[in-house]
Amino acid sequence: MEVEKGKTFKYLREKKGVNQEVKDNLKHFTKIKKVILDALKEKDLTVEELTQQLKMPKHEVVYYLMSLVKYGFVKTGVIDDMDEYFNYKISK
């Protein structure tokens, strides 16, 4: 079967489909990414402050926030006076 180069994803999507769990995971991440970035648009925040705003477990905030840092959406800001918690800011 001839498959057009650059559009081979369509071939596999038709052949095997995409399971619901994978789609749900994408929706979940897209939603969390949006709420974290929206919160950081207002002001720079620490994990603790983000946790309070987003009502998510702290370790989940750390995981998603650090992933957003890794992919360049968020930057690490300054550390607090006790040298314990950094704040995080939107990458311009």
Binding site: V47, T51, V61, V62, V69, Y85, F86
Partner: peptide, 16 residues
């Protein structure tokens, strides 16, 4: 490394 420095995965605190 995954983080900019050593952090606790539970809350992002720099451990002491």
């Amino acid at each position: 490394r995954p983080f900019s420095t050593i952090l606790r995965p539970g809350d992002g605190k720099v451990p002491d």
